[in-house]
Simulated scan of single mutants.
Amino acid sequence: MQNTIWTEEFGDTAHPPVLLIAGSMSQGPQSWPDAFVGRLAAGGRRVIRYDHRDTGRSRTVDFASDPYTWRDIKDDALAVLDTHGIESAHIVGHSAGGLLAQWIAVEHPERVTTLTVIGSSPLGRQEGMTIMRALMGEEQPEGSLPPPAPAFVEFYRQMITTAPPATRAEQIDFQIAEARVLSGGGLPFDEDEERRQAERLHDRALDLSALANHRLAAAADMTFEPAGVLHTVKAPTLVIEGTHEPAKPGHGALIAAEIPGAELLMVEGMGHMLAPPVQGTLADAILAHTVTVRR
């Protein structure tokens, strides 16, 4: 069955294109807030964000009858570029979107002008297994990635053992509670703004229950990522991590160490999300990174 991906773009189409790849189970506007996107467009970039399949306004499926893999989700990003007539773009990925961005940079270097990875883990290190072991209380084997922060582990342990939110009000309250944990505690948490965002995301989604299909796609193949390949990345790379990252602490340095010539930017107070106080810093860093192609 044909997949339909919802996209939108900002800025002048004559400007250098920037493709924003959201995290797992995240809508485009969830990972990439309007103000942040606006800063990039105002800085002279053609910015494209999109909803992953089974999120937001993109098509949803019955996974049992129409399954897919994370390779398919990765290929969706390339299809977005094709649809917009773009041969090569500055690729920016957040969280699991950062894994997809790294994967694209490895497999399709001709499509990646520069690479920016935010709040992500190194490709091929099975970050999902690290989180799963942490949630199950299992010991991490030697050489594993650093585990999530205790507050992150406790929140998602409780989520596993409690009934999912059913009503609109419960779902919005859950999104706010999750955002508080992902904020990492390094910056003031604006609950009113988070509520407005959660209400918007809830009401624009075609089917919120379809988000779980991303977990099914990952569970179907926990080792989907190619390993030992980051040293082949040719695109100039910027890796960004917050000092209060709760989900993937210390993973940014590992990515930067594996990609030749990669730069690491640590953002003070930032957690896992692009909170308003750091959006200017992030946008400025990406604009500077995408000015000159250092091949």
Results as ranks from 00 to 15, higher is better:
Ile118Pro: 02
Val106Thr: 06
Gly228Ser: 02
Ser121Tyr: 00
Arg111Pro: 01
Pro122Glu: 12
Asn213Phe: 14
Pro122His: 14
Pro165Asn: 04
Gly124Thr: 02
Gln102Val: 02
Thr130Leu: 02
Pro226Gln: 08
Ala96Gln: 14
Ala210Ile: 03
Ala227Phe: 02
Pro122Cys: 06
Arg180Asn: 12
Ala220Cys: 08
Ala219Lys: 13
Leu201Ser: 08
Val106Glu: 06
Gly119Asn: 12
Leu206Asp: 15
Ala219Glu: 15
Leu211Phe: 12
Met136Glu: 13
Arg111Trp: 01
His94Met: 15
Thr161Met: 12
Arg168Tyr: 07
Arg168Phe: 07
Thr223Val: 10
Arg215Met: 13
Thr114His: 01
Thr113Trp: 06
Pro165Arg: 00
Glu127Phe: 09
Ser121Glu: 04
Gly228Thr: 00
Ala217Val: 14
Pro165Met: 08
Thr116Asp: 04
Arg180Ser: 11
Asn213Tyr: 07
His108Cys: 13
Pro147Met: 03
Pro188Met: 08
Leu100Glu: 02
Ala179Asn: 11
Glu194Pro: 03
Ala149Ile: 08
Arg125Tyr: 10
Gly228Val: 00
Ser209Asn: 10
Val181Ile: 15
Met129Val: 05
Glu138Ile: 01
Asp173Tyr: 06
Phe189Cys: 04
Phe189Met: 07
Gly228Tyr: 05
His231Trp: 08
Gln171Pro: 00
Glu191Phe: 04
Thr223Asp: 15
His214Phe: 02
Pro147Phe: 05
